[in-house]
Design a protein around this nucleic acid. Structure first.
Lengths: 147, 147
DNA sequence: ATACAAACATATTAAATTGCTATGTTTTAT
DNA sequence: ATAAAACATAGCAATTTAATATGTTTGTAT
């Protein structure tokens, strides 16, 4: 019941790509890792998952890098986290072989509504939202100096 | 982003207690563990957490055991899982020291709505619901023989 | 009074997952 | 050709989770 470091890195890295979306040219993992203050080689593993989920386009070779596969409005936190987290939603139900009715009841009464709620909440947050909020926040950062 | 075995056991065990609620006398961990087909000693650890959260009353000694501290309508899956799972909701935000605005934006745009959605979904499911659904399900189990 | 059945407590072990590093190979612009 | 990048795989260290083992307390019934 926790978003992993990888998940956080994914959200952060994708927001960086969103900020760069109109620029036309890709960002490298090295650049992003430096901005975020995390390991480049670990970030690459995150991108490998994002690539597999077709959320980013990659260019190999010199001057290569990554960019968003779709505009920021069309990529949600759910897209990103379901590409990265193994188990974003439950599926267990094979537990309690001796009491299958109880197992199914837990599935139906607890897990299914929980999954739906998670999916809904995460699908509502787009990269465009994240980027806008980041800019609002960094604004209030700089404003602090002028109070 | 996953409900642990302990969490599942907690939900199942509490549903057993709910079924026994009107009986007046407590159920033992041994009895429950046998019905669920899980280890007694492990289940005891689950009950230690449920006890700490004051969701169950315990009676020591012979003829002792556990029973619900409140009626099944007044105990939710959220109560149970937040007593058992260490991290049911996020709190991280100290990540990304170098980009605090981004950290706060992720917190505000993704984590906070996610936590609220989880809390809401789990609070909507009571032990009474779970019990009713279990009975409905076991009904359809037995009905299978008569088709 | 004693024996037993239960909760309660703590330590240990084993397995799985997560976070991260290391060491490459392929590809492509210059 | 060379350098800069993505891409791939293996391995390691730390943490968390699942489970066992070994008790001790406490209350009930005989």
């Amino acid at each position: 019941m926790k978003i992993s470091a990888k998940g956080r890195y994914g959200l952060a890295a994708m927001t960086e790509l969103a900020e760069n979306y109109s620029a036309g040219r890709p960002l490298t993992t090295l650049r992003i890792s430096e901005r975020l203050g995390i390991s480049k080689i670990y970030l690459e593993q995150v991108f490998s998952l994002l690539k597999r989920a077709q959320l980013v386009l990659s260019m190999k070779g010199s001057q290569g890098g990554y960019q968003l596969a779709r505009p920021p409005e069309e990529i949600t936190a759910y897209d990103i986290l379901s590409a990265i987290e193994l188990t974003l939603t439950e599926t267990a139900s094979e537990a309690f072989e001796k009491l299958p009715a109880l197992g199914r009841a837990i599935e139906k009464t607890v897990y299914a509504p929980l999954d739906a709620a998670i999916r809904e909440a995460l699908s509502a947050a787009t990269l465009a939202d994240l980027l806008a909020e980041t800019e609002r926040e960094s604004h209030s950062d700089t404003m602090m100096f002028y109070i």
